[in-house]
Design a protein around this nucleic acid. Sequence first.
DNA 1: ATGAAAGCGCTAACAC
DNA 2: GTGTTAGCGCTTTCAT
Lengths: 373, 373
Amino acid sequence: MPPAQRHHPTLADVAQRAGVSASTVSRTMRGLTTVSPDVRARVEQAARELHFVVSRQASSLVTGRTGVVAVLAPTLNSWFIGSALSSLGPVLRAAGLDLLVYVVPDLAERTDFFDRLPARRNADALLVFSFDLSEEESARLDDLQMPVVYISQHAKGRPSVYVDDVAGARAGTRHLLGLGHRRIAFVQTTGASGFTFSSHERLLGYRQALIEAGVAPDDDLVVATPPGDKRRTAEAVGTLLSLREPPTAIFAEQDEVAVSLVWTLRKAHVDVPARMSVLGFDDHQMAEWSDLTTIAQSPADIGRAAGELALDLLNDPEADRARHLVLPTRLIPRATTAPPRPVAQDRPAEAAEPADPALDAPARGRAGVDTYE
Amino acid sequence: MPPAQRHHPTLADVAQRAGVSASTVSRTMRGLTTVSPDVRARVEQAARELHFVVSRQASSLVTGRTGVVAVLAPTLNSWFIGSALSSLGPVLRAAGLDLLVYVVPDLAERTDFFDRLPARRNADALLVFSFDLSEEESARLDDLQMPVVYISQHAKGRPSVYVDDVAGARAGTRHLLGLGHRRIAFVQTTGASGFTFSSHERLLGYRQALIEAGVAPDDDLVVATPPGDKRRTAEAVGTLLSLREPPTAIFAEQDEVAVSLVWTLRKAHVDVPARMSVLGFDDHQMAEWSDLTTIAQSPADIGRAAGELALDLLNDPEADRARHLVLPTRLIPRATTAPPRPVAQDRPAEAAEPADPALDAPARGRAGVDTYE
DNA sequence: ATGAAAGCGCTAACAC
DNA sequence: GTGTTAGCGCTTTCAT
């Protein structure tokens, strides 16, 4: 009675069936050219018949390469990361590499990760997503003995892929300036761990564009709110609307907040865009649904680029170990930005709470009609 | 001159440093109790000093276990999958397992995956997300020699984790019935590959609840639209509104569509919920933002449950190989459902296009005022 | 172009 | 409790 055949077939099994040595099977499986055509055919057939798959573990052991690219991410429940990984996957697969994910949602797991560096022997490269790493943590990753690519952060001296946030924010602000706005607010996003780089840069771009246009940046016009917090968002809107000189346009650092702003404004019967323009950043899926004008970035492109950069680093020892890939953004004009209505600039503004009786009607017919107050 | 120390430290290195044998180090690293406390301490210190990490490849080779759980998913850019994986990750980590992701976005990759079954020797278990597998594909996975857990699909005879869609849809429909609605439409989602199971089940629950309540299901009230397609959604709304007896409530199979419906209706100046109640399913992030009444499911719970089920299957050979974990849903009443206005049932309804001059004002003050037509 | 042999880093069986 | 020994399945010299 033959032993229960519960294990996978091995090189030796294929070799025996094809009447060759294990070495030859190995060479065949790796596509080396030093195998005669007829032998190759025999081996391939035998392998197919046995459903033979090379064991990564065994070959890793000798080659030192794991065939795995690891990703470090704070969550997978994110539009940005989800899109980027979805396009990264196929890039890696095409190169015969598998995608391993370390989800590190909280501080405890983070500390543990950097303590133990579980990726150390279990991946050929690491992609770090949207973390604000301390210099100490980056240094820790440096002695990981593998290429580490940073995504959405400017890791000086280390390979990075990110979008040109400054230019994007500048372009967005210029769009609003071009429409005639002069009082342009900027809403920062707080508490979204891991995106402080973008946050800084976008604010910077906003300021640059204002200065270029000869508009003095006003810190009263810069407020912050956490994403998804209606109350805080409403507060921020209230603060802006109750300024002596309220803005006529709001540039939100993130689409999620921008959409929330639109809701809040419309609920308070402040028409968008007739009374207030709103501009987002990201081109999040919901931006399209909400007809939000926004500065688009493509996380899919970022994921792809990061994957290709990692492959370069992996395959070419001469590759530039500090290359920064900076991807462009582009303005997508939609329905939430428009020229400001001519309004008496020095009249006191209403607060957010009192419901304005103005209709939430399309802007066209009403723009220019000064029914303010 | 010492050789360039470019390789990772091995068991032997630690053993030498701690003055013990490799076996002892191995036992220590695996937490076996047969190591005396002082030796254990010495070994652990040596390991720490050398930044030693056990090579998965090498240990896999002998144990036959890879320490990896693989996930098969059509995309990662999905609220459901993202949330589920984000909670699955930590569950696996706690068990010392890594998470490997196969993103299989299109038919070509899918065919290739089932052809080659790359997971075969590279994972201990496989979680299959939201795919509508053919019986042939499932059969292929069966001879994978590892536990395969199906998520969001009812794989008969195989371990599965999903939400009770029938009960959820029934509860939702009852909620609307309880508010007094009798003409309740159901909007199906088409083209969202991988969720046809839920789709069927939700429609079923809707029908059941109607029948239970003595309301005859009317096929005219069941329409379909792809998610994120504004035009088609508007068409669906138009179809429903132009029925001789239009609905007073719409139950959408997915929140994304429900939110889109609310937008479309409000744009057409059909007040929600005063003139039309809208109910969603999922409790997608945007449901809260949109104040959408919905049937909540928790993808995070599903991910966790699936992970734990996989661990059971992995660790307990006696475990039930066909266990189905069915998770509950719950109604979250928010602002898009309300009692129907008393309305002359047999009057002809307006079409979707003509802008109704009715204000998009809060329902309270206006409900009950019959300004219809 | 092919085969034989050595060994990658670890665990498991067996001694002691 | 701890050390010794023999592989796990593959790749890689080195022969031929």
